[in-house]
């Protein structure tokens, strides 16, 4: 399947060149600094998981990176290799999937059309492929809004993945799902990762972070507490807030 993707992209190794740099990025609402001078680099490769307590700024960080919010100050710099369409290089899935009031297949098709994919036949093939990845082929003609929560989130993942992004942002993708649906969702994330798309996701679920993360960004009160490889983070966190979080303490 990696080859299949390569045929579309023409460049799977391009992900290696991927680098997202944040320089002193702040985001304020009124006088409140919700993101406070954040500097970090995220590179292509296995998943980066953003962790931290509620209100640490996890979702905000994703929205800033994805361009849904503009930083109050600081810079966000994308290096995406050969292609230079930064918007096309990324996609996002939200905590609550937003499905259009049309069929499952039409939801994916809409995203493709908006991304500028003109050719009907190519779109139809891509839709079929994406639905197959999500195990939703049998539901292609159903109304997207009447699917179960797990099916909707898988469709959201399929819709985002169909755009063939280099980076896929996931904001608490399994927060509202039962264990079985969470499992299906995580399996899909693994597949997307294995196919060469960089995953940057938030979660408050420690187990999920352990299952998926290769690298952890730990935020605390809008600041970066630490950025550590997952294999070290869960054993020996570097920062006090992260250590407290992992021990289950309430660190204020």
């Amino acid at each position: 399947m990696v080859n299949f993707l390569a045929a579309w992209n023409g460049e799977t190794e391009m992900v290696e060149d991927l680098r997202l740099t944040l320089e002193e990025v702040s985001f304020e609402v009124g006088s409140k600094k919700l993101i406070d001078r954040l500097s970090l680099i995220v590179e292509g490769g296995p998943p980066t998981v953003v962790m931290g307590p509620n209100g640490a700024g996890k979702s905000l960080l994703l929205r800033l990176c994805h361009g849904l919010l503009r930083p109050t100050s600081g810079r966000i710099i994308w290096n995406i290799g050969a292609s230079n369409d930064v918007r096309r290089a990324q996609a996002m899935v939200f905590q609550r999937p937003v499905m259009l009031r049309r069929s499952v297949a039409a939801n994916v098709d809409y995203a493709l059309r908006m991304s500028g994919m003109r050719e009907r036949k190519a779109r139809r093939e891509r839709v079929a492929w994406a639905l197959e990845q999500a195990g939703l082929t049998a539901l292609a003609g159903r109304s997207a809004r009447v699917l179960s929560g797990g099916e909707q989130q898988r469709l959201a993942l399929a819709r985002a993945w169909a755009l063939q992004p280099q980076v896929l942002f996931l904001d608490e993708p399994a927060a509202n799902l039962d264990p079985a649906a969470t499992r299906a969702c995580e399996d899909m994330i693994h597949t997307i990762d294995a196919a060469g798309t960089k995953i940057v996701m938030t979660t408050h679920d420690l187990g999920q972070a352990k299952r998926l993360a290769s690298e952890v960004l730990f935020l605390h009160q809008g600041r970066l507490a630490e950025q550590t490889a997952a294999c070290f983070f869960f054993k020996q966190p570097q920062s006090q807030p992260a250590a407290a979080f992992l021990e289950g303490k309430l660190y204020l």
Binding site: G67, L100, R101
Partner: peptide
């Protein structure tokens, strides 16, 4: 409800007019 999702899909306000009219049909 739709703003962030449409923003993520690069749908500007001009296109969103027709999308949301259809969503609210």
């Amino acid at each position: 409800e739709y703003a962030e999702q449409l923003g993520s899909l690069n749908v500007g306000p001009g296109r969103a007019i027709w999308t949301l009219l259809w969503e609210g049909r």
